[in-house]
Nucleic acid binder design. Structure first.
Lengths: 125, 125
DNA sequence: CAGTATCCCGCGTGATACTG
DNA sequence: CAGTATCACGCGGGATACTG
């Protein structure tokens, strides 16, 4: 318990910025797409309520990760894009992905399987 | 929505491994200290109940991040240390810290201030 | 179409006391 | 000293309907 004990605090900040079930997804969509419309974003993410999505977008905006751009007031048309800060975070996360792919490929494949979920014989509702 | 849509899944795995209020702290303590005794770990972390700490240690053990070593059965003496997988994760997290320090120094300083909490005039209870 | 309001539920977290 | 059991609470997240 010396004075250099906690260098991990920055990690806390970073993780706090990622706290929220959908933030990573949003981040990555924006990381790969420049800017996305609100509705578009809401549709590409499997099943998230508008409320929660908006909440997390707000937080990310407050954290300076994303930028909100309003192009028309009527009809409403809002675009979201990453700030430089957000892009930098996305870049930093590549290391985590690499780690997962290298050290936990099974679980990664697991998630992929769940996401894809090929319609075998089931009738979708 | 092409077939390459989700490359972020690895990120999910990594974040899931970090889910838990104290896991980052534990990880970093172990990252800087080789191995730590159970009680020691419990004491250096400000205020966490043994239950929660143990839960998260278990999870991290299940995730293969840490190794549990029992040296005596009586009196009980248990040491925790990082696995290679855990070390690799710790290394990957350095990127996140760097990001935080570069892009959100204010909040980092904020946390530091809270953690330190110099005994100004207050009587601690 | 973008965003808000309300209600609800589960889970992660915490406090305490107990066992070997 | 290491670990478990029990109870309780707050909050993040979800569903739905509504507003401009």
């Amino acid at each position: 318990m010396t004075e250099q004990q906690f260098r991990y605090c920055g990690l806390n900040v970073a993780l706090k910025a990622l706290t929220g079930k959908w933030k990573p997804v949003v981040l990555f969509h924006l990381f790969h797409n420049a800017d996305i419309r609100s509705n578009e974003l809401w549709r590409v993410i499997p099943k998230v309520s508008k409320k929660v999505l908006l909440e997390q977008l707000r937080q990310m905006e407050d954290d300076g990760l994303i930028l909100r751009e309003e192009r028309h007031h009527f009809p409403p048309e809002v675009y979201y894009r990453l700030s430089e800060k957000g892009k930098a975070l996305g870049t930093a996360l590549v290391g985590l992905e690499a780690w997962a792919n290298e050290h936990a490929p099974a679980q990664v494949a697991d998630i992929l399987a769940q996401e894809k979920h090929p319609p075998l014989s089931g009738q979708e509702k």
